[in-house]
Design a protein around this nucleic acid. Structure first.
Lengths: 344, 344
DNA sequence: GCCGCTTCTGGGAGCGCTCCCGACATCATC
DNA sequence: GATGATGTCGGGAGCGCTCCCAGAAGCGGC
């Protein structure tokens, strides 16, 4: 039995290679009856074009890469990445692209990315996450000429990026806490090299200042986006007696909650706690977390679409897309409505 | 400037395409001086062979796939996968293979695997994890003829697999608890469709029975490898007053710990708790967890090596490799040595 | 100095597909 | 009925590499 190739499919359908190719690639200019015939043969034989041959002859591989700039442990313990990958993976399927995840944490693996992945033309483009300001990787990618989009922030406006509206998110938190009459508002931030963290911080400070209640620098502690880090940060904060703590992620907020509870603080009466993300830990914590909702999964799918746009139409200028954020109020900032009342 | 191809490199080095190819692929039969000359050109120009062309002309893509049979959330929240992926990724780098991660959770994405990944000859082989007994995927893969290895258990001996020695691990736990004089030994298992869970359970039961202290079926609760699941399972268990609980993973053990502590039980005095894996949550929990250490990262690298063996030498019969497990005793089963004594 | 051997090198023939262009048929138009 | 526009189809020419084999070069032995 001969090998199953385009040629063979064409032969079986009684058409030429070219016509079979047109049908399989959904191009028009083929009479419906002939199209049908080819499609039937494809169905019957289960023909699938050879990826490498396609990639060599056409000019693209239909493989998109996802490069995450974090250690494996960090990636595989963060619900944020779960949601993001979910969104990216789904969008790839929708657009008939294969997603390939590249992990590179050690410096050595780092070196490999340009050589082994980019120069070999293995991927058509890259979604890159968790970069920090002035990340050399970004520069490297720009140099290499490969299309890519960043999930997060970039200073260079000629690079496409997707992100949540961090500014608005932080401002909403400030507004909410002020409206609750909190006066000793603390923050547990992410590392300042993270652009998301510094943007949230700046926006938060500004919102407080505008409202005439500027932030006390003593009430700001930098943590590392982990639960344990936030737990430790909160212990530091306790002596300063804050009446509200804004943690820059839900995971960190969970650590904040734990530290406060162990110290005997009532939430939200003594201290209001607010997170960021609205990912699984938020609604399940006790008490449920007031948090800034961002659409992480959508962020992923938008990133893929933006990347495909860049690949297919390099002439379109780069652009940045910010997805809306909104505040989700739960019991960690506002006492439940039944407090002091009877269940109806 | 002409495109950088093998042809061009050969031209610059003053040799033929074939010779350049030999040098780049590390084959011998090339005079050292000529080899040097080619290598210099490669270095200078930064030439990297085109992946698709290689893949088409040779018969392999140098891409290995990792297929994880779980939802994205599960994968991205489990330290086990972090370690496993780490091992696999490292081994791929060592062997100059590109790792591609395929996520497919929905039924629709499932369908894609055979067609889009296997038939296209995109990957040379697959590492498959988290299969369950009689998983149709395994059958599909066997049918398709693509080389693959399973991380975990398989009934079919003609399939290569890598796993920890679960039997020994479970037996060690039984032995340890018995030696501590525990009599009401409970287990919080994983789902019984998981082969690892059922093997651990069987081995554990057998070990207890052999020691003349058969397991009380009332003291066995099935959970789902999550912390919350184990928390709930333990609450069920509390009324039966166990004096030891063996959880089938460290994450679950953490849930067990939490439930016991909330119920006011002292650990290990009232209840000894033992986990499985010895991954990050184990040593950091309070109290630190006695657990069965398995070398997850090594499991990953061995899987890759076994896969490469199958790809390169299909004639070698399939084999199963079991990596040793050992007991790591910490404070969750044995009170710290300083209890009742003075620090020296 | 010639033969036969080994060691090294070069060129041809694909791998399976896409893309381009020319051939052909069909139909409307004058 | 000749002409051109329009719509379909087929074949050739690669994409950049690997593999195979033939041929060149170098060497010792007679």
């Amino acid at each position: 039995m001969p090998k199953l190739t385009l040629e063979r499919v064409a032969e079986l359908a009684g058409v030429s290679r070219s016509t079979a190719s047109r049908v399989i690639n959904g191009q028009d200019g083929v009479r419906p009856e002939i199209r049908r015939r080819v499609l039937d043969v494809v169905e019957l034989t289960g023909f699938v074009p050879h990826a490498a041959a396609r990639s060599l002859a056409g000019q693209h591989s239909r493989i998109l890469g996802l490069a995450i700039r974090q250690t494996t442990e960090q990636v595989f313990s963060d619900p944020y990445f779960a949601a993001l990958v979910q969104g990216i993976s789904g969008a790839c399927n929708d657009h008939d692209q294969t997603l390939s995840l590249f992990l590179f944490q050690s410096a050595a693996e780092h070196e490999h990315l340009p050589a082994r992945v980019l120069r070999t033309k293995l991927v058509d483009g890259l979604v890159v996450t968790a970069t920090f300001s002035d990340d050399p990787l970004v520069w490297q990618l720009t140099e290499s000429g490969i299309p890519f989009v960043i999930v997060g922030e970039v200073s260079n406006p000629h690079i496409s990026s997707v992100d949540a509206d961090n500014q608005n998110g932080a401002a909403l938190v400030a507004e909410h806490l002020l409206s609750l009459g909190r006066t000793r508002i603390a923050t547990v931030t992410g590392p300042m090299r993270s652009a998301a963290a510094s943007t949230r911080r700046m926006a938060f400070e500004r919102a407080l200042a505008v409202a005439g209640q500027p932030m006390d620098p003593e009430l700001v502690v930098e943590a590392d986006f982990t639960e344990d880090g936030a737990y430790a940060a909160t212990q530091q904060l306790l002596v300063r007696a804050p009446d509200a703590i804004f943690a820059f992620s839900d995971r960190m907020a969970v650590g904040v909650l734990r530290a406060l509870q162990e110290a005997g603080r009532r939430i939200p009466e003594d201290v209001a706690v607010i997170g960021f993300d609205d990912l699984p830990p938020a609604a399940d914590s006790r008490p449920p977390l007031t948090t800034v909702r961002q659409e992480v999964e959508q962020t992923g799918s938008v990133a893929v679409e933006l990347l495909l746009e860049r690949i297919r139409s390099p002439e379109i200028p780069a652009r940045r897309i910010e997805l809306p954020t909104r505040l989700v109020v739960r019991a960690s900032s506002v006492a439940s409505q039944q407090v002091g009342g009877q269940p109806s």
